[in-house]
Structures are given as structure tokens and as C-alpha cells.
Write a protein that binds this DNA or RNA. Structure first.
Lengths: 215, 215
DNA sequence: TTGTGTGAACAACTTCACAGCT
DNA sequence: AGCTGTGAAGTTGTTCACACAA
């Protein structure tokens, strides 16, 4: 049976499995074992099997997993089969890179709007879309059925923009601004922070350098 | 005493505390309680106290934590006081945005080189630095003491570039390429994957939409 | 009296090891 | 004979609740 409530840690890995499976599908691989898929995705095979078991019973003992069906199954669980409208707010360096990135459309997200405050940016075309005035945020979100927002504003504006997005009906926010943003419980927030990642790396780099001296 | 081996989960949160503390410092706040700092960083106060206890004893019972000393303490633990040379490899949309971002220099990382294969990009200036040929990777890494690399190449080139970086002496890699990259155990790798983040968001958005219908 | 530091209970996640299906 | 699916054990992380220092 399809299981209720998939663990967070599993959800976070499903996209990795999906990517590996799509690569296999492109090579016309029909069936894959947990061992092989685990190597491709960079995880432990037992973990992979337990993760997939949360989606229901896809595998066949003694054989492995059917690639195409797993791709479909994971896509459905992640909600990638539905239309998902996405807005990017803030078109500074990072926002423009994200708008031009193309990986969003490729994975089934419809980039529905680019919004910024800066009059110098409004009207400019980025990645095939015209930047619109953030003053129209509420209208754009409602009219184009935007449910996911990418926040790429400066830190100072992040909370205020997030509040407006949530007020307009957005239920998922990907925050690139280096600031702590709060949202109501029914909204999902994820943070991507470049300097945080670098600082974490710095710690381990630093520690391993010390270890080397000690050895 | 300064404690050995800080838990991974704690290390991942130290940069958040550091950011909140620096904001407090700029407002001339001298002392902060775990409760207030926890709100600013968006975590539970007990977790914050346990995290900070791994750095040693900074707080004073009945008073709180001295902001300046904590900033110094966390910076030292994270290795931000040392010189850290950083190279960005791959100057497509994302790589250029990262190069222009400025947040790296601000947080004490020295952007030492920008590298790309594309002859059309080599020689161009991005964010105040000239893009160099990736053929010179090994030489650049050694001469400029690069220990951290930001991988922003296409997926297909990521593993090969990572191998060269590691071979040249890089010990920390931040991978933005949508591919699984393997590195030896002594090298730390972190992954930032935009479409993975969106797919995770999509899951929760999707699930909450179902819940609403059920209610 | 206030707010840290921490043992202890709890919860989540990972890994092992093997039963059982094909 | 091979590989999944999963109880059970092990590990890591979180939260509680309170002793104790200032």
C-alpha cells in the first residue's frame, strides 16, 4: 500500500533518486537493483530500500526496481506531475542567474513571474520573461496561480516580501536571502544560504588541517 | 574547557548564530540571553544553549552571553580568522552571479580565482576579477593557496573538475552542479542543488494542498 | 531571581542482518 | 540464487526540566 507520511529525511533524498533514475532511463536501463541505484545516488543501499519502501512496494525480490515505474512513482509523490507556478522575487545578480537557469522549467516548474522593486530592472527581459513591478505581487500571484516563490531579495526586504507572498496565497518559499524569515505553519520554507555553506565548509577544512598537523 | 568534536548539526547552525550575533553587535548590544538569540536565529533556546556549550563556557548564569566574545569564539571555531583562498570554477549564469555576489569577501573568504573552459569567457572581467583558463587550474590552486572550491560547472564536467581540484590540493568543495560528485574522505563536500530544493518544496506544498481538501 | 549548563527522556534517522518472495 | 522489505539494534539529534551559579 502507498504509505502515509514519508519521513523528512526520505523526502529530501527522493529528488536525488529521481535524478539518478532519469539518467538510467536515458540509457534505456529497464531494471535497477538497490545496490546499483545507491551507488549512482551516493547513498547506502539499505537506506535506499527503506526510503523506497515508504512509497509502497515497487521492487521485485531477486530482480530489482523497474526504472520507469519508479520515476513515475517518485514524480507523483513529489507532486511534479501537477502544474506548479513559480515566481522569482528580487532580480539582482542571484535572481537573474536563477531566472536564466532553465533548470526550473526543465523539471516541470512554470516560471510565472519575475518581480523587483528597482525601476531600472522593471521592463527588462531576463531568461525570456519581462521583469514586473513588485507592487503588482498580489495580483500576479493570484492571477497566475503561483504557489511557490523564490526569494532572492536583499536580507532587509526578505521578511516583508515573504509576508506579502504568503498573504497572496503562496504556500512554499525558497529563501536565498541571508536572513531568518518566519512564515505561518501552513507554509513551507527552505533556506539556501551560500555564505552559511562556505562557513560550514570552512569549519571542516580547518579541523582537518589541524588533524594533519597532529598526525 | 574548549570541547573536542562538535556535532555536525551544531556546526551547521553556528553560522546562523554568528549572523544574528553580528546584527546585535551592530546595534551595540553587549549581552544576549539564549531566549533572545534563539528567536533571532529561529531555533529553540535549549538547542542554542546546548550548541554553545560545545564551544566551552561563554555564558554567565543569570545574565546571558557576551555578544562580542561569542562572535570571536564562533568565528575562531569556524576557522574564519584564517586566510581562506577560494576559487570559482564554471562561470555560466550561476558562477557569474556567485562571483559578483560579494558576500564571500565580506565574510572573510578571499576570492582567488575564476576559472572556465570557454574561450569566450576567459579574459572577461566578472566581479572585479579576470576569468582564467581552467587549463591552469592546478597552477592557480597551488600558487594562490586555494583550499576551497566552488563548483558551478555543468553536471557533466563536475566530477572531472572535482578530481583535478582535489589533486591540486583543495580540501573543501561546494558543489552547485546537479550531479553526484565523489571526493576522497579527507575532502569535505557540500551540495547546493536548486532543483532538488524546489522538488522538496513541491512535496510539502502538494501534501498540504491535499490536507486542505481533506479538512 | 534570573538564565546558563546539562543529565535524562524522547524522537528521528541510519545501519545491520536476515526472513521471505521470485 | 538473488535482491527486496523490514524488525531490531545502534547512532545522532532534540527537548525537557531543573540544579546551580551569579
Amino acid at each position: 500500500m502507498t504509505e502515509r507520511s514519508i519521513p523528512d529525511a526520505t523526502v529530501a533524498r527522493l529528488p536525488l533518486y529521481l535524478r539518478a533514475l532519469i539518467a538510467l532511463q536515458e540509457q534505456d536501463v529497464v531494471t535497477v537493483s538497490s545496490g546499483d541505484l545507491a551507488i549512482a545516488a551516493g547513498v547506502n543501499p539499505a537506506k535506499l530500500r527503506k526510503d523506497l519502501s515508504h512509497l509502497g512496494s515497487y521492487g521485485t525480490r531477486g530482480v530489482g526496481y523497474p526504472v520507469r515505474e519508479l520515476v513515475d512513482g517518485i514524480s507523483t509523490v513529489l507532486g511534479l506531475t501537477a502544474d506548479r507556478g513559480l515566481a522569482i522575487v528580487g532580480l539582482g545578480n542571484l535572481g537573474r542567474a536563477l531566472a536564466a537557469y532553465g533548470g526550473f522549467q526543465e523539471r516541470g516548474f512554470r516560471v510565472a513571474a519575475l518581480l523587483d522593486v528597482d525601476p531600472a530592472l522593471v521592463g527588462r527581459e531576463v531568461g525570456g520573461l519581462v521583469v514586473e513591478d513588485v507592487a503588482d505581487l498580489e495580483q500576479v500571484v493570484r492571477e497566475r496561480d503561483v504557489t511557490i516563490a523564490v526569494l532572492a531579495t536583499p536580507a532587509g526586504a526578505a521578511q516583508q516580501v515573504a509576508d506579502r507572498l504568503v498573504g497572496a496565497g503562496v504556500t512554499a518559499v525558497l529563501n536565498f536571502a541571508p536572513a531568518h524569515v518566519q512564515v505561518p505553519a501552513h507554509v513551507t520554507l527552505r533556506r539556501v544560504d551560500l555564505s552559511v555553506e562556505l562557513q560550514i565548509l570552512s569549519f571542516y577544512e580547518h579541523v582537518s588541517a589541524r588533524d594533519e598537523r597532529a598526525v
